[in-house]
């Protein structure tokens, strides 16, 4: 049994009076590729964003490689870690966004290098070499000097993935990375993700692409209204859902 990389226990999050995550318990093992599915409002994106502290959470714990993320809990007391600590922890995970969020005033290579130079404090030429290596890996080695404005959506997303992976994270987080892409461009991004999965990267993907979840994921988590409803093998879950809600969800999502 592979080592436990990420441990989530009793995770709770509220937006004002609205409880978005109502107690999430989950363990992610090294090398697992987990697709998180569910309708909008189910809390799946919020869950992802809590893991790298883009969202605060009010209850429960998240541990990465045994280290508490975001908050230090001692019995009844709960203290938010320092901003410096949180920034360091964020570098342990990599995230790719639905809107890519590439830095428009930097070339593809500079986008990938920024974290390497400023966070990991690598010398510029070493960072550049790593950046070019990863851009090559996602098929954009010849576009290293291009600006985001000169790239298509699919290319931008691949650069964004390279930017996250180049930091050598323990865990990759993908937040609906194909939702904002034209259909013809989705394939190139999914190819890259498949490749990373094959290399053994531990990944959590929030996605609408059911077929992709079925093909690539070793495990699927179905969320509904802030709780994990079902969690298991994609083949079993999609063919024979255990809960009414998952059955409903599968019916309404395009999947054949």
């Amino acid at each position: 049994m592979a080592k436990t990389l990420l441990e989530i226990a009793g995770l709770r999050k509220t937006y004002g009076t609205l409880e978005v995550l109502k107690g999430i318990d989950c363990q992610v093992h090294e090398g697992e590729v987990i697709a998180i599915i569910g309708s909008s409002g189910s809390g799946k994106t919020t869950l992802l964003r809590c893991i790298n502290m883009l969202e605060d959470f009010q209850g429960g714990t998240i541990s990465l490689d045994g280290e508490e993320i975001g908050y230090h809990v001692e019995g009844p007391t709960r203290r938010r870690k320092s901003e410096k600590d949180i920034a360091r922890q964020r570098a342990l995970t990599g995230m790719a966004f639905q809107q890519f969020n590439l830095f428009p005033h930097m070339t593809a290579a500079q986008n990938v290098m920024l974290g390497l130079v400023k966070v990991k404090r690598l010398p510029k030429d070493e960072a550049h070499a790593i950046a070019v290596k990863w851009l090559d890996r996602v098929g954009l080695g010849d576009r290293a000097g291009h600006y985001p404005g000169q790239l298509s959506g699919g290319q931008q997303q691949r650069v964004a993935i390279a930017r996250a992976i180049a930091m050598n994270p323990r865990l990759m987080l993908f937040d609906e990375v194909t939702s904002a892409l034209d259909p013809e461009l989705v394939g190139e991004v999914l190819q890259v993700i498949k490749g990373l999965a094959a290399d053994g990267m531990t990944m959590l993907l929030v996605t609408h692409e059911m077929r992709f979840a079925f093909e690539v994921a070793s495990r699927v988590i179905f969320m509904n209204q802030g709780v994990i409803c079902e969690d298991g093998n994609p083949r079993e879950m999609f063919v024979a859902p255990k809960t009414e809600r998952l059955a409903e969800f599968l019916k309404t999502s395009s999947f054949n």
């Binding site: 883009l54 901003e83 920034a87 570098a91 990599g94 400023k118």
Partner: peptide, 24 residues
């Protein structure tokens, strides 16, 4: 999204402001 992407790669606020926000 720019601030979020900067946070995601581990930049502090000061670094985010200097390298991502101010130039834009």
């Amino acid at each position: 999204g720019q601030t979020e992407a900067a946070k995601a790669i581990g930049l502090t606020f000061g670094q985010t402001f200097a390298y991502v926000l101010w130039p834009q």
